[in-house]
């Protein structure tokens, strides 16, 4: 690959990284896994003056559940670590279902969860999971840290609200209200292809009732689509055929797919409805089995 000329820095602390970003005055890019940035450099779609490689910063490669049940994912946590984590597989079913569907097995060894959310690609799987799970990003700048809920973090296709001198250091998923149930289904033409359409569902249940729900859609809009009405309709009730069908219909109705070579708009809408129903159906089944 022959990208345009750029300056390369490899800081060893978050503070150093932030001061380099300051220096870059908006012409700097952060390199974590390089899943999207490296192809863009190769194609010269991106020509940053400065590349701040954060891979040598210690203690950013983690994911852990805190005592309160919240999940914390560090800026260098690779998709593969989430995919292979016993903790995730036992406690966070939406993330567990999405992890093996992100990109392809090779990319998953490098790409990062936080980087993917920052990239704000409407085709990004993690952004949908974050929306469905009410997650937030922890950003650190020269004046300290702030929490940014994912719904206000993404400001448009490939755009986030980070200031040029801020680094996203962690993603947080709040503790569930009851039993965490959920899943992720994606239709892709081939492993590593952008999603034709995908659905993230996260449902917390207690005593056979839905206490909290989130549904988000991938690849069917200018940004990740928050199917909040579909999710809200589930809260307070049980998961039955009627409520599932209603949620599936509501989810499909907020999708804003475009027709392209992956399929027509109506096909993608149909997939959203089918996948939402299938996901909620299997959540309902697993909840009944557990009960």
């Amino acid at each position: 690959m022959y990208p345009s000329r750029f300056r390369y820095e490899s800081p060893t602390s978050i503070e150093e990284a932030i001061s380099l970003l300051e220096e870059g005055k908006g012409e700097a890019k952060v390199l974590a896994g390089g899943q999207s940035l490296v192809p863009m450099l190769k194609l010269r779609f991106a020509s940053p003056e400065l590349l701040v490689d954060i891979n040598n910063i210690a203690d950013l490669d983690y994911h852990r559940f805190d005592a309160d049940g919240s999940l914390h994912i560090g800026a260098l946590c690779r998709h593969e670590h989430l995919e292979k984590s016993a903790d995730i597989s036992a406690r966070q079913p939406t993330i567990a279902a999405a992890a093996p569907l992100v990109a392809d097995p090779i990319v998953r060894t490098r790409g990062t969860f936080v980087g993917s959310v920052c990239h704000a690609d409407p085709q990004g799987d993690w952004a949908s999971c974050m929306v469905a799970l009410d997650g937030y990003i922890v950003a650190q700048g020269p004046n300290g840290r702030r929490n940014i809920p994912v719904r206000s973090f993404v400001s448009g296709p490939f755009q986030n609200v980070l200031a040029y001198n801020e680094l996203a250091v962690e993603a947080v998923i709040p503790a569930p209200q009851g039993t965490a149930l959920g899943g992720y289904m994606k239709l892709e033409r081939r492993v590593g292809d952008f999603a034709t359409a995908a659905v993230a569902v996260a449902v917390d249940m207690s005593g056979g009732k839905v206490t909290r729900a989130g549904i988000a859609l991938t690849g069917v809009g200018g940004t990740t689509v928050d199917a909040s009405d579909a999710a809200a309709a589930l809260v307070g009730g049980s998961l039955d055929e009627a409520s599932i069908a209603q949620a599936a219909e509501l989810a499909a109705s907020v999708a804003q797919p475009r027709s392209d070579h992956r399929g027509s708009a109506s096909y993608k809408r149909h997939i959203i409805s089918t996948f939402t129903a299938r996901l909620l159906g299997s959540i309902s089944e697993s909840n009944e089995r557990a009960a």
Partner: peptide
Amino acid sequence: CVGSNYMDYLLPTAWE
């Protein structure tokens, strides 16, 4: 040309 890179020109992997 739609198919000028391996995101658009799909070669099956061992997965499919």
